[in-house]
Amino acid sequence: MAAPEPPHLWPWRVGTIAVLAVAWVAATGSGLVPAVFLPSPADLWDSGVDLVTEGYKDRPLLDHIGFSLLRVFAGFGAGALLGTALGLLMGWRGWIDALFAPFIEFLRPLPQLAYLLLLIIWLGIGEAPKICLLFLAALPVAAVAARDGVRRADLTRLAAARTLGASEWQVFRHVVLPSALPDILIGARLALGIVYGTLIAAEIIAGSTGLGWMIVDAGRFLRSDRVFVGVLIIGLMGVALDRLLVLAEHRIVHWAGR
């Protein structure tokens, strides 16, 4: 996000949330909307307290959150690293691009739920298929971003480095990589968002742990209160993760800028 917002804007921010909250209380309090469609704030609070104190299905809430975060980090980390490496190579050498581009382009918009069963067949029901699903979600996004970043490298700087006698590796390391970095970081942020958005699909596989599974399991019994609490937690965590990555991005670009 850009500069901190001027103080005179906070009423607008708080105002929207207040309007939403009032509408929510009014809609549920009046009995106009049954609890199964929209749980009341009190229901939500009770459900939240219950989840925090009692956990969900034999596990504390923190365990579920932890499982989900671990999966996200593992899938995102592996996918972003490998994807970026592959993307750099693809941008650097046209023949590598030609070899891998069809798969990357195929994989990128492919709905993850479609190949869920295949992952179970190939990787079983443990952590492997879940992380692999997230990995496959992150990989093409990171690869495409890195490739485009390399391709955007400044022609004149490249030529200058070459005439100065820099080796291919030196050109890559000192010219191409720094100029591709902003794109790589944008790609990483995008990949994290996509991995996070795929979390539920991953945890549908042989579930019993994780926030995503908790929401699915609660949805089965139309426990809208728990679904809502789950959505709130998962949404706020998503915002926090995104902010964290932006922070890291600023640090890295700041450093790279020098």
Binding site: G193, Y196, G197, T198, L199, I200, A201, I204, G212, I215, V216, G219, L222, S224, V227, F228, G230, V231, I234, G235, L236, G238, V239, L241, D242
Partner: peptide, 14 residues
Amino acid sequence: QFLRPLPPLSYMIL
């Protein structure tokens, strides 16, 4: 900002 990272499957049932 809240909607963006939210997994769509999480609110499908709603």
